[in-house]
Amino acid sequence: MQRMIVSFLFLIVLFASCKKDSAPSFNAAVKAALTVEFDNIAGSEDLKLNNVFYYLTANGDSIKVSKLKYYVSNFSFTNVDGSLYTIPQDSSYHLIIEGDSSTYEPEFNIPEGEYKAVSFLLGVDSLRNTQDVSKRTGDLDVTDSAKGGDMYWSWNSGYIFYKLEGISPQVAGMMGKSFMYHIGLFGGKTSPTLNNLRKVTLDLTQRGTPKVKAGKETNIHLTVDVLKTFSGTATVKLADNSMVMANPYSATVANNLPGIFSHAHTHN
């Protein structure tokens, strides 16, 4: 008898879970939580700061990474029905800091539904870059050295979008073997300059669409491969370019950056 009850319960549970998967009913008027996880990797390995071993780029350069920080902002999500939901700007700026796990999974509230794509900017848009200091709060606080203060050029007003630092035996410069990639420049305010903001759009249909619904957690798991900083649209050799900051070559590196992001899977 007991066994029968257990089997019966099991069946009910099975049925319930089947129902959930096969016919989700979404209420677009209700917003639910969605996290986007930024999982920093180096090729096939998980990225570790100051790792014992070198990681190998596609160009044959060896690197160890001591710092990786980047801004992701202006998120929008495309529903399978084609409609677009854009996150309100004030909650749309996130600084991802390797080594600080509290920054890895920005959370958003978006209408219930199934989504086929996510878009975001790598960096801080020009409008926010020129706003009054009182609007630069949280991750954008330029007076907080743990946040925006370490991602800001005080001498050339503007945020650094992507900061990758480390060492490589291929580097033989004044600074020893270290390399520093500080990619910023939003287009300029008083005169036009480079615009190194890059939009990233990822298709979510190949590796699992997120089904966002109240009462459950949905997570889009992205991988961010730092080694792809050095390849993709252009081959970036560390021997030739160990310090890339506010200089013309930064645009070449910026062109590679959308390629570091991939959709790995979705937890529904």
Partner: peptide, 29 residues
């Protein structure tokens, strides 16, 4: 600044405070 790199007076003091040869500190400190 001589090169006009700073476009907002409110953001100006951060430059000398954090410059290595001027005040050499962080805003947080």
């Amino acid at each position: 600044m001589w090169d006009g790199g700073i476009f907002d007076l409110d953001l100006q003091p951060i430059a000398p405070i954090t410059n290595h040869v001027e005040m050499d500190d962080t805003m947080a400190n």
